[in-house]
Structures are given as structure tokens and as C-alpha cells.
Simulated assay, not measured.
Amino acid sequence: MTDRNGIRRWARQQRSALSPTEQDQAAKAAAQQALGLTELAGATTLALYLANDGELDPQPLLDALAGAGKTVLLPVLHPFVPGHLLFMRYQRGEAMTLNRFGIPEPQLDVRKVVPVSDIDVVFTPLVAFDDAGHRLGMGGGFYDRSLASYQGLVVGLAHDCQQHPALPVASWDKPLSLIVTPKGIKRFRS
């Protein structure tokens, strides 16, 4: 299978086949894997996401990082630049709103927006990944556009079942250096 949309369907079926218990166990296992990354030692500002549509849930990682005093950010759809994301400081318990895709995000507050250049690590969701560290997203290009000039570390979070041997690569696709799954950390050359 080499068609991007076909691979997306396949990967979404893989992760949607996981039971709620398997999803919960995977989220906790991946958080433990991520917390062991040496690259996080000096990181103070980290962007995560809220899970949607069977994505690996980063909530246990988010809670651990926030509990350790790190600045945790969540993405918000940019209100004026279509197809881009802003990253906002997150505080536990704050109310979320659903964006136009039905994904929860913090209520936009420009005082809490952090420039992408000030983020140490971005944990990104993905639909599929391959043996070379390529990431296949939902197809909207939000992360690709928003992180196009980002020089920091981008780490993919995924279920092991989302790995595909080889993804079709577009000119805008940048391979990830790291992908964290419940079973381990996959490192790639960047």
C-alpha cells in the first residue's frame, strides 16, 4: 500500500481496534518511555496535544511534565492564518473548547501564546510512521506548516501498530528524529 489516504485508513483501523484498556495501557507505557528520554533533561517548554480519533493519548505524559514544573503547551488553530497552529500555555483543569474539527483545545488567549522558536520539544500526533522516521499526519498539514522553520526537537507519539514499512514522502515532509511508542523509542537520523 503506497497511497497516503489508503495508509491513513489502514493506520486508523489499526489504532481504533485497540480496546479502551489497551489505549490506557499504551498511553501510560509511552509516557514512561518518553520520560526516559535524555533529550528532555534540559527542556523546560514542551508542546503536546490532546488525543483525538484513537491517537496515542499523551495525557499521562502531559500530567507528569506539568507535575515536574515544566511549561506545557497545547496547540490551538490559528484564528487568522488558515492551516497553522498556535501553541498556548496549558494549566491543569482549565476549560477546553472544541475547534472546528471537534478536537478539544484551550480557549484562545494571546497572553498565553508561546512562539514556536521558544519551544524546546514538540510532541506531535501522527497517523502512521515508517522505518525511516517519516510521519504521516491527518492530511491537513497543520504541523508541517506550523513547524516548517522550527529548529527544536520534534518527537512523534504513536501506537506500535501504526508503523508502516515505507510511507510515500512529499517534498514538505521532514523525517522525525524520534518516535516514542509504548514498546520503545525509535531513533532516526535527521
Rank of each mutant, 00 (worst) to 15 (best):
L108H: 12
D118W: 10
A95M: 11
F87N: 08
V81G: 00
V121F: 03
H134N: 13
D131Q: 15
P75W: 01
G102N: 05
Q107C: 09
Q91L: 13
K70F: 03
G54Y: 03
D120K: 11
V110I: 12
M96K: 13
D109F: 12
F142T: 00
V72H: 04
F129R: 01
Y143F: 15
F87I: 09
F123S: 11
G140M: 00
L136W: 02
D120I: 10
R145K: 15
R89C: 09
K112C: 08
R111E: 11
R135Q: 09
S146M: 05
R135M: 12
K112G: 02
G93I: 13
P115Y: 04
R145A: 03
H84W: 04
L86K: 07
L98T: 01
P58N: 06
D131K: 15
G54H: 06
D118E: 15
V72M: 07
T71R: 06
G54I: 01
L56T: 06
P60M: 14
Q59V: 13
I119Y: 00
Y150S: 02
G137E: 02
P125M: 05
R111T: 15
G102Q: 04
E105Q: 15
E55G: 03
E105M: 08
V154W: 02
A132K: 15
V113E: 03
G69C: 09
I103R: 03
Y90I: 05
T97G: 07
L61I: 13
D144W: 00
A95C: 07
V81W: 04
L108F: 05
R111S: 14
K70W: 05
F142Q: 01
A128E: 11
L74N: 01
D57A: 12
V114P: 03
F123H: 11
G93A: 13
H84D: 02
G152L: 07
K70Q: 09
Y150L: 00
G54S: 02
G102V: 01
V72L: 11
D130A: 13
A64M: 09
S117V: 10
Q151D: 05
V122H: 02
M138G: 08
A132D: 13
G69V: 11
L86A: 08
R89I: 12
K112S: 14
R135V: 10
P79T: 12
P75S: 08
R145Q: 07
G54E: 06
L108S: 10
L126W: 03
Q91K: 14
Q107K: 14
G140W: 00
G137N: 05
Q59E: 14
